[in-house]
């Protein structure tokens, strides 16, 4: 559906869930986060967005900063399998039991069906948004292994300034078909 006056509010559904439990953590208290299967002790203020802890404290830079307001999706990671815009999720809203997966942890050797499809179709241009796009697509396929075009465009709201949208859509469909095959 190409609707230039479409309701953008659904984009905000990917922002931090407001009912998430807030840990009462004071300054200088170490925070425990499970990222890509490893438990990390992190020294950060509780309102620090997960994005910046991943990039600066953990040192995983595949998750990108684009806007800081959950609009562009360059910072998309999985929290318990749900595509989440980490720039707007404070670490106080994540428990140590929750499983955070970044692009570096999506597959051990870039062999996720989406990564293979992306390679096959030469999807990226500058590439900056692509890790977030792949993480959003991976959560989509996890929930819906055979998405229709409508399902894809409804879920894939990440911004790409280079305009790789059509190849992204084709790559998701390719990965979905290979998953089935």
């Amino acid at each position: 559906m190409i609707d230039w006056k479409s309701d953008r509010s659904r984009i905000h559904s990917l922002v931090a869930r407001e009912d998430a439990p807030i840990n009462k953590i004071g300054r200088n208290e170490m925070v425990s986060l499970t990222i890509n299967g490893t438990v990390h002790q992190v020294d950060a203020e509780p309102d620090t967005p997960l994005l910046w802890v991943i990039r600066e404290q953990i040192g995983l830079t595949g998750t990108k900063y684009g806007c800081g307001v959950a609009q562009c999706g360059a910072c998309t990671v999985h929290v318990d399998g749900v595509a989440t815009r980490s720039c707007s999720l404070p670490i106080s809203a994540v428990t140590s039991e929750q499983k955070i997966v970044t692009i570096e942890g999506l597959s051990p050797d870039a062999s996720h069906p989406l990564q293979k499809a992306w390679l096959e179709l030469d999807v990226p241009q500058c590439g900056y948004c692509q890790t977030g796009q792949i993480m959003a697509a991976a959560a989509l396929l996890q929930a819906n292994p055979s998405p229709s075009d409508g399902d894809i465009v409804a879920e894939m709201t990440n911004i790409c300034r280079c305009g790789t949208y059509n190849r992204i859509k084709a790559a998701i469909k390719l990965a979905a078909s290979e998953n089935r095959g």
Binding site: M1, I2, D3, W4, S6, R8, G66, C67, G68, V69, Q71, C72, I152, V153, A154, M156, T157, N158, I159, R161, G163, Y165, N166, I168, K169
Partner: peptide, 17 residues
Amino acid sequence: ENFDSYQMMRMDEMPAV
């Protein structure tokens, strides 16, 4: 000041080319 007030075309608006 940001992508909420300076919108970008997204996948749902992209035509077939």
